[in-house]
Simulated scan of single mutants.
Amino acid sequence: MELLWFVFFAVLLTGYFALEGFDLGVGLLLPLLGRTREDRDRMVAAVAPYVLANEVWLVAVAGTLFGVYPLLEGEVLFTLYPLVVAMLLCWVLRDAGLWFRRRLDGRAWRGFWDGTIAFGSLGLSAGWGMTLYAAATGFTASPVHPVGLMLGLVVTLLFAFHGWTFLGWRTPGTFGATRSGRMLVLSGLVAALPAAGVLAGALPYLLEHSAPPASLNVLSVMVLPFAPIMLGAQIWVWRTFRPGKDAFRVPSFF
């Protein structure tokens, strides 16, 4: 049962990196590729249908972490408290930018919220790299470490590449690239590599610190039946908003 839940947790975390990675990547590229207001609208429009569906994976990761590995909750929150708070603020800023950028039509208004999207995406991307470093050290080292900062840079670059690949798939040729669905899957796997590497190294530790079997059995009954629903909803989103399906009709959130 412990191994089953480790596999489930690993799928959720790597799936989050592979899916939310392109959301954050598009946000990172907003100041670089979005040279005009129309370009920025198109970039946000391309990613808009996927954002909320992808964020569900993070909620599932957090719930599984604290349910299956309750002893880690104190270590994560105590060791990474400033970083966790900073990442939550970046998450709020990024999502606020997505929702508010079109509430008014002024240039300054849109510029401000476009900036929060880029800043929030950068903070989340770098924060995830630093979090992975802390996890790889067993939460014994500060994430603000040269190696942690370097891993934050690596994750940021991987997400940016994944976002660029996504734009080439969702809006072929619009931002200088045309990418196939196979290339998008490949870039998603690459974006998830740091998380997969840390999970592989942490396997013995996580198995030893799993919740008692009785708790895992209860979680299995309560949680696992909803996994097909989550997967089915994700498939529906991708089939509904695949390339050619009104990529530019809604230029942003409402």
Rank of each mutant, 00 (worst) to 15 (best):
145 H>M: 08
135 A>Q: 07
159 F>A: 07
137 T>R: 14
166 F>Y: 07
121 S>M: 05
133 Y>W: 11
123 G>L: 01
153 L>W: 09
131 T>S: 15
112 F>C: 03
153 L>S: 11
147 V>M: 14
110 R>S: 12
135 A>V: 08
136 A>C: 10
153 L>Q: 08
135 A>R: 07
141 A>S: 15
144 V>D: 15
122 L>T: 09
142 S>Y: 12
142 S>P: 11
117 I>L: 13
113 W>G: 10
127 G>Q: 08
143 P>V: 07
121 S>T: 04
162 H>Y: 02
161 F>M: 12
132 L>N: 03
165 T>G: 06
160 A>H: 03
169 W>T: 01
165 T>W: 04
161 F>G: 14
133 Y>R: 04
121 S>L: 02
169 W>G: 02
115 G>R: 05
155 V>W: 01
141 A>I: 14
145 H>A: 12
151 L>R: 00
168 G>S: 04
115 G>D: 07
138 G>M: 09
146 P>L: 07
157 L>I: 10
152 G>F: 04
155 V>M: 03
159 F>M: 08
131 T>D: 13
137 T>P: 09
136 A>P: 09
138 G>V: 06
152 G>E: 00
131 T>K: 13
153 L>K: 05
157 L>R: 07
159 F>H: 11
158 L>N: 07
160 A>L: 01
159 F>D: 05
142 S>R: 12
125 S>W: 02
110 R>L: 06
170 R>H: 11
156 T>V: 07
139 F>Y: 15
158 L>W: 09
148 G>A: 05
143 P>Q: 09
116 T>R: 09
163 G>A: 05
151 L>D: 00
160 A>N: 03
131 T>H: 14
112 F>V: 14
134 A>Y: 01
110 R>Y: 02
143 P>I: 09
149 L>G: 08
149 L>V: 12
164 W>S: 12
132 L>D: 06
142 S>A: 15
155 V>K: 01
170 R>T: 06
143 P>C: 06
144 V>E: 15
154 V>Y: 08
126 A>K: 08
114 D>Q: 07
127 G>L: 08
150 M>P: 10
132 L>A: 08
136 A>M: 13
170 R>C: 03
136 A>K: 13
126 A>S: 12
151 L>W: 10
151 L>I: 04
129 G>F: 02
130 M>Y: 06
115 G>H: 09
118 A>G: 10
143 P>F: 08
130 M>L: 15
148 G>R: 01
147 V>G: 13
160 A>W: 02
140 T>N: 14
133 Y>K: 02
169 W>Q: 01
